[in-house]
Amino acid sequence: MNIYTTFGTNDLTRAVRFYDAVFAVLDQPRLPDWPEGWAGWGQDYDNGTGFWVCAPFDGSPASTGNGTMVGFPAKNAAQVRAFHAAGLAHGGTDAGGPGTRPYYGPDFYVAYLRDPDGNKISCFYYHYDPATDAGA
């Protein structure tokens, strides 16, 4: 399945700075040929997912949805921690530090951020084993 996600932003430059940092950690480059007023990340348009930011089409200010979140898969727990640190260093705010959560299974490692516009994102790793995690 090919899907894409778009978040509205009130400051494209600020959003690009934030998402360049967190997607660099996940090896997801910025797509090169985006139109004016847009930025997108992913591998290509025909495979996998794409993530985009732009001003809302209706001209109203961008706002967040309560209960709305997009999660990005990681290769390991270290990548989840790096994602979280990169987001905090580039204007994001903490919405739940890296670790496991009692309401998920013990093998689900996750971190939560809010981007500079307040949108909630997460980075997660399935099959977490603390015995093999040198950074735990």
Rank of each mutant, 00 (worst) to 15 (best):
Y112V: 09
K120S: 09
A95E: 13
A82N: 03
C123N: 04
G91C: 09
G87V: 00
G105L: 09
H84M: 09
G105R: 13
L88W: 04
A85E: 14
V80K: 02
V110W: 01
D94H: 09
T93Y: 08
S122N: 14
T93P: 02
Y104T: 14
Y112E: 07
L113H: 02
G105C: 08
I121T: 02
G96C: 08
H90D: 10
V110M: 12
D94P: 06
L88S: 02
Y109I: 11
D115A: 12
A89S: 13
R101E: 12
G87P: 00
G87H: 00
S122E: 14
I121S: 01
G91D: 04
H84C: 12
G92E: 01
G118A: 05
C123V: 15
L113E: 01
C123D: 02
G118N: 08
F108C: 09
H90M: 11
S122D: 15
A85C: 05
D107Y: 10
G97N: 11
D117I: 05
D117H: 10
C123M: 08
F108T: 07
G92C: 05
P116E: 11
N119L: 08
H90Y: 11
T93H: 07
A85Q: 14
L113I: 06
A111W: 00
L113A: 07
A86Y: 01
D117F: 10
A95R: 08
F108E: 04
V80I: 08
H90N: 15
K120G: 02
T93I: 13
R114C: 12
D107P: 11
P102E: 12
Y104I: 11
R114S: 14
R114F: 12
C123P: 05
N119C: 07
V80R: 01
G91V: 03
P102W: 10
Y109G: 03
Y112D: 05
P98W: 11
K120I: 10
R114E: 14
H90P: 02
A95I: 05
G97T: 13
T93S: 15
D117M: 12
P102S: 13
F83E: 00
D107E: 14
G96H: 06
Y104Q: 13
A86G: 06
C123T: 04
R81W: 07
L113R: 00
G87C: 02
N119Y: 12
D107S: 15
A111S: 13
G99N: 05
V80P: 00
A111T: 01
Y103A: 13
A86K: 00
K120Y: 09
A89D: 14
A82G: 03
L88I: 09
D107L: 09
V80D: 01
G105T: 14
G99E: 04
N119H: 15
G105Y: 07
N119T: 10
A111G: 09
S122K: 06
A82I: 06
A95C: 10
D94Q: 09
P106T: 11
F83M: 10
G87M: 00
V110Y: 02
D107A: 14
G99D: 04
P116M: 07
R81E: 08
R114H: 15
T100K: 03
G91W: 01
R101F: 08
